[in-house]
Amino acid sequence: MVRPIGILAGLGIVTAVLWSLLWGAVAYIQSPPMMSAEHYVQHNLQPKKDISFSFDGPFGTYDNRQLQRGFQVYKEVCSACHSMKLVAFRDLEQIGFSKPEVKAIAKGWAIETPTPNPDTGEVSTRKSLASDHFPLPFANDIAARAANNNAIPPDQSLIAKARDEGPHYIYRLITGYSAQPAELLKKYPDVKTPPGLHYNAYFPNLNLAMAPPLTADGQVSYSDGTKATVPQMAQDVSAFLMWAAEPKLSNRHRVGWAAFVFLLLFTGLTYMAYQSIWADKKHKSE
């Protein structure tokens, strides 16, 4: 008696599942879901921005000259809004700056002392040291929101690791500002960019509070004489942010390849040892 009931119950479940699948397929055919504006832009309106970096691929390494230019872009443009609280000034020695240069760079930033003046209650500042981390551009989140259309600029220390495609995404975002395409507004009239926001085809919801940071060629005067076009500055700062998030990338690549070669040689030696040890035993068994 139990077996027939179990069989009937199983048939009932299978029938319900098949009916649900069939009904869902019919509903999908009759009323297919409408593509969202974000997906429409991603598949139809995003300009192709292919860019390559020296650190791409398993053999990639950082270009210190590019990283130094990227730091210059961050310092003169991005640091006004974005912090890098996990990076210390002395870390810049890793990208080719000398100790005196790092000390001079640090002195260009003022840092607040942890306690207010006991007499006036005012917060005083001092020149940064090489051991200090990059100071915050705003005193608190309230000040950050007030200066950025109620949005808090994200910290840049790990941004290249926190975003899909890392520096490639950053480059596309920086260079992706434009007016909203008429084709998009015609198809999705309700997605018009609100006042105070900026249309960007590479931002997930198409509109962001950050204004275009790089607006014209020559916005930064590179000390090495490189022509500072908007694409060049965007590529350089993207590379610098990748270094900030993954400073040991080049070393990791070298260690990885050394480990791979070692394992390859070890495998060969192990196989030859196996052949040598068992050769006599195989001969005797025969």
Rank of each mutant, 00 (worst) to 15 (best):
K187W: 11
K187E: 10
I170F: 14
L173C: 11
L185P: 06
I152Y: 00
N149F: 03
R172D: 13
A179L: 13
G166V: 15
K187T: 09
N150Q: 09
Y171G: 08
I159K: 09
I152C: 01
P137R: 07
N140A: 05
A160Y: 00
P167Y: 13
A147G: 03
P154V: 01
F138A: 11
H168A: 13
D141S: 12
N149L: 03
Y169L: 15
S178C: 15
R163P: 05
Y177I: 11
R172F: 14
Y169D: 15
I159R: 08
A151Q: 01
R163I: 08
N140F: 00
I170A: 12
G166L: 15
P167T: 11
Y169P: 15
K186N: 04
L173Q: 14
P153Q: 04
E183I: 09
A162P: 12
A162F: 08
N150G: 03
I152A: 00
H168W: 14
R145E: 07
A151T: 00
N148M: 02
E183C: 07
G176Q: 11
N149R: 00
A147E: 07
P154H: 00
L136C: 07
Q180E: 14
Y171K: 09
N148G: 02
K186R: 05
P153F: 03
G176M: 11
P167G: 12
N140M: 03
A182T: 15
I152T: 05
A151R: 01
L158W: 06
L136K: 13
L158I: 09
A146D: 06
I170H: 14
G166Y: 13
N140C: 05
R145G: 01
P181V: 08
A146F: 04
A147C: 04
R172K: 15
E183N: 07
N150H: 07
K186E: 07
G166H: 13
L136D: 10
L136M: 11
F138E: 08
R172M: 14
Q156H: 12
R145F: 03
T175D: 12
D141T: 12
N148P: 04
P137C: 06
Y177V: 10
I159W: 03
P137S: 08
E183F: 09
A151C: 01
D155E: 03
A139Y: 05
E165A: 14
A146Y: 07
D155C: 04
P137F: 02
N150F: 02
S157M: 02
N140H: 02
G166Q: 14
P181F: 10
Q156N: 11
E183K: 12
A151N: 00
N148K: 01
N140L: 01
Q180W: 07
L185Q: 03
E183M: 08
A144C: 03
Y188W: 12
S157V: 05
N150M: 07
